[in-house]
Design a protein around this nucleic acid. Structure first.
Length: 453
RNA sequence: GGUAACGUGGCGGAAUGGUUACGCAGAGGAUUGCAAAUCCUUGUAUCCCGGUUCGAUUCCGGGCGUUACCUCCA
């Protein structure tokens, strides 16, 4: 489609037309997971949202024109803590969680990013960047710690609309006797005891959290690139600090041009977070729902809005996809989705608007011919839905029930006999029994089918 | 306290300076032994107070409310 893409830019707080630095080489960096514990629904939202943005960018600029980098944070205090609690080595823990994360991405039908760098594989570049910052007096050493001198960066707070006075007045910044100023943040810290470490000019140690994103985005996308994404909660301090490090180290005016932040998943209107104790792991859904259901649910609100998670939402999304499979018509033909249908996605990734269009295309497909059904299917495919064969969708439904399929089919035969004898009382009793087990009987076109309620 | 996002019908959720979102639920109908599923038809809305305007739900200002960030968090 030839139309422009618009995005809500957190830097400036306005919706803006997306103008790439180089339209044949677009860079997008998204903060990926810290692999210390099972991924939860809150982590799933940016996966799906930025996957959607990746798809939209590829649609407009071409598959090869977009470089999507999503990091894996595999060294961090939370990881050290978690490995101690779980009594497994750090590498075992990070390998295990990374594997789960990749499974979850697949389950959610996300395209694979162009690059997925790990922090531990880029320590040398981090040390280089620290050296650079020290040399140019943006950073200083204190008791084997290296801190970034926030006062040296005049634009600090521009992304999060904060000023230094307020931050200090808030006095909730980490107090440390090593820091010259309370707002300074750590670039490198010493490792003690059995903590993992890397050799550095300042002794055995490990990097601060923010540094990896500055280093790895530069490695793959350059000092200034198009889009940087992540959850809202990363705006401060993480992204603010990334900007400070990168701009000062690279001597540029800008780091990323567009900052895109997704809103939270909430439970009863409260943020879903480990510290709140209200998380739902992605893995817990795998036996219960096809990944498409989760994916649709995650796209059901605009990405900037909070999204309240509940069973009703899942039920609705399940029934919608179930219904949509009624018009499933996969094809290898090149079918173009009409501009007017695609338009909401170009306008700030308006997924609910696009889903509304899918509903309209469904109505047309239902009453229409094969090509209407193919168009509908292609339009669903665009946002990662209806990509699995119908058999697989049906299979999933039959996966988890108390009765075996044979038992159910026997019951159905028994019931149909009763129906033939006009013994409706017995027929309804059998149907009731099955329904108690969550199995729903449908008599359609002379045949009886069943499905999970 | 500072900063930000948000406040749309019963619910979820878009859009919009004057006109249909869409989905779910509800109501009526078709179909069915009865259901289920599906299909058809259909009602209901823009937190409060000012301002700008011929006209505001939409723009501006002020309230009130909800949530988040300011410490790790997607």
């Amino acid at each position: 489609m030839n139309k422009d893409i618009f995005l809500s830019n957190s830097l400036g707080g306005k919706k803006e037309k997306f103008v790439p630095i180089n339209k044949s080489n677009i860079g997008m960096y998204v903060c990926g997971p810290t692999v210390y514990d099972d991924p939860h629904i809150g982590n799933a939202r940016p996966l799906v949202i930025f996957d959607l943005l990746f798809k939209v960018l590829k649609c407009k600029y071409g598959d090869k024109a977009v470089t999507y980098v999503r990091n894996i944070t595999d060294i961090d205090d939370k990881i050290i803590k978690s490995s101690k609690e779980k009594k497994i080595s750090i590498s075992d823990l990070t390998d295990k969680i990374t594997k789960k994360f990749h499974n979850d991405c697949e389950y959610l039908i996300c395209d694979v990013p162009t690059h997925e760098p790990k922090a531990t594989e880029n320590i040398k570049l981090m040390i280089d960047m620290i050296n650079n910052l020290i040399k140019n007096e943006f950073a200083y050493e204190s008791e084997k710690h290296i801190y970034f001198k926030v006062k040296k960066f005049k634009d600090y707070g521009k992304l999060s609309n904060k000023n230094l006075e307020d931050l200090i007045a808030g006095s909730r910044v980490e107090v440390s006797e090593n820091k010259k100023n309370p707002e300074d943040f750590v670039l490198w810290k010493p490792s003690i005891d059995d903590e993992p470490f890397w050799e550095s000019p300042w002794g055995k140690g490990r990097p601060g959290w923010h540094l990896e994103c500055s280093v790895m985005s530069k490695k793959y996308l350059g000092a200034t690139f198009d889009i940087h994404g992540g959850g809202r909660d990363l705006i401060f301090p993480h992204h603010e600090n990334e900007i400070a490090q990168s701009v000062c180290a690279n001597k540029t005016d800008r780091f990323a041009n567009y900052w895109i932040h997704n809103g939270f998943i909430t439970m009863s209107k409260e943020k879903m977070a480990k510290s709140q104790g209200n998380i739902l792991k992605i893995g817990d859904f795998k036996n219960k729902y096809n990944g498409q259901v989760l994916r649709l649910a995650l796209m059901s609100a605009h990405y900037t809005q909070p999204l309240d998670w509940n069973d009703k939402l899942m039920g609705e999304c399940y029934r919608t996809i179930s219904k949509w499979y009624g018009c499933y018509a996969p094809t290898n033909k090149k079918i173009l989705i009409k501009d007017e249908d695609l338009q909401p996605l170009y306008d700030d990734l308006n997924s609910p608007g696009y889903i509304a269009n899918l509903h309209k295309l469904y109505v047309k497909a239902k009453d229409g011919n094969l090509s209407d059904k193919e168009l509908f299917t292609v339009a669903c495919n665009f946002i990662g839905l209806l990509k699995q064969p119908k058999e697989k969708w049906d299979e999933f439904k039959k996966g988890k029930v108390a009765f075996s399929e044979k038992q159910i089919l026997d019951k159905i035969i028994e019931r149909n006999k009763a129906r033939q004898d006009k013994n409706y009382k017995l027929a309804d009793k059998i149907r009731g029994e099955l329904l108690d087990k969550g199995i729903l009987i449908e008599d359609k076109d002379g045949k009886t089918t069943w499905k999970i309620k």
